[in-house]
């Protein structure tokens, strides 16, 4: 008992004066650090709920001065933001579901004992982790396949992934081999083994991958921009980018202001703040739930290199 007590308070844990000072400084540092991580989001939120013309006076830090919802209503009424949201969600759902389905099957194929093509498939895919054609050849491939200005370009190029294959395969290896052996002895086909035995056991790794893929799809904007130049399939991120960068945005806003009294007090930056929050909120809302899966996914990847 006594020994245990002593171990618990090893000398380096025993509070010394300088140690206490350091602890206090460290805690203050960490609070400041957390504030820096959080405040930029909060600032946008405040701005998005404040009247645009009033915000120009500055001094908005922690709470809106003149409350309004018009920044949000403008975005939903006067732009096609709603369509963008639907396309974003569709991309996340279709892209994530197809990549999990296909990469999962591929991973299973590379783990079946005695399958003659197992090593071959694995190597073919591992090569793609180290070598790629780069931006322009990939772009030209999409052009030549006629995938420009389609929805297909969002999910088809990400159907199989060598990285996801590695993660799922290493998880399947950790399952007891006897499960599959006994199923095989009882005459189950490979597909049945995968869908009825392996898949239910792989839920943790598939959840981690699903979340990685979903966040990636939600956040991507560059491929939307280059593969959908016509703008028919613009996602939310691209709407935000347009407000951020395109020069005709103030003019559009002015048109709306002339038509509607309620829009008089909007500014580009207040509208942009509202859009930023619309784009960010889904991530922040699901964040507390998915972050632990994300971490587990990352550590699997780290161990297997």
């Amino acid at each position: 008992m006594r020994k245990k007590e002593k171990e618990r308070l090893a000398p380096y844990q025993r509070p010394t004066f300088s140690g206490r000072i350091f602890d206090i400084i460290n805690i203050v540092l960490m609070i400041v650090f957390s504030f820096c991580m959080l405040y930029p989001f909060w600032n946008q939120l405040v701005l998005s709920f404040n009247e645009g013309t009033d915000a120009l006076n500055g001094g908005l830090y922690f709470w809106p001065r003149v409350w309004t919802l018009s920044n949000y209503t403008y975005m939903f009424e006067n732009s096609h933001l709603g369509t963008g949201a639907i396309i974003s969600v569709a991309r996340v759902v279709v892209g994530t579901a197809t990549t999990i389905f296909c990469s999962g099957l591929l991973a299973y194929v590379t783990t079946v004992h005695g399958f003659s093509g197992r090593r071959f498939m694995r190597v073919i895919y591992l090569i793609t982790m180290y070598f790629s054609g780069g931006m322009i050849p990939t772009y030209l491939l999409m052009v030549n396949l006629g995938l420009l200005n389609t929805f297909t370009v969002y999910w088809l190029p990400g159907l199989f992934s060598a990285y996801y294959m590695m993660l799922i395969a290493s998880y399947i290896y950790s399952l007891p081999e006897s499960l599959m052996e006994s199923a095989r002895i009882h005459g189950a086909g490979e597909m049945r083994i995968y869908f009825q035995i392996i898949l239910p056991l792989c839920v943790p790794v598939l959840a981690a991958i699903g979340i990685m893929a979903a966040v990636g799809h939600w956040n991507s904007w560059f491929d939307v921009m280059i593969y959908n130049p016509a703008g028919d399939w613009d996602t939310l991120q691209v709407y935000l980018r347009k407000i951020l960068l395109e020069a005709d945005q103030p003019a559009k806003l002015q048109n709306a202001q002339q038509l509607q009294e309620a829009m008089r007090k909007l500014t580009t930056s207040s509208v942009r703040a509202a859009t930023t929050m619309i784009v960010t909120l889904p991530i922040i809302c699901v964040y507390p739930f998915f972050q632990k899966y994300f971490i587990s996914g990352m550590t699997i990847g780290a161990v297997k290199g």
Binding site: P40, Q44, A55, L240, I243, S269, R272, V279, I283
Partner: peptide, 25 residues
């Protein structure tokens, strides 16, 4: 948990936030 929150938002969002924080007012 707070430290890796910004990792999950896109660069578009970060750019927009920066434009706000670094604007003249």
């Amino acid at each position: 948990t707070l430290s890796y929150m910004p990792y999950f938002v896109s660069w578009v969002v970060v750019a927009s936030i920066m434009n706000t924080l670094l604007s003249s007012n």
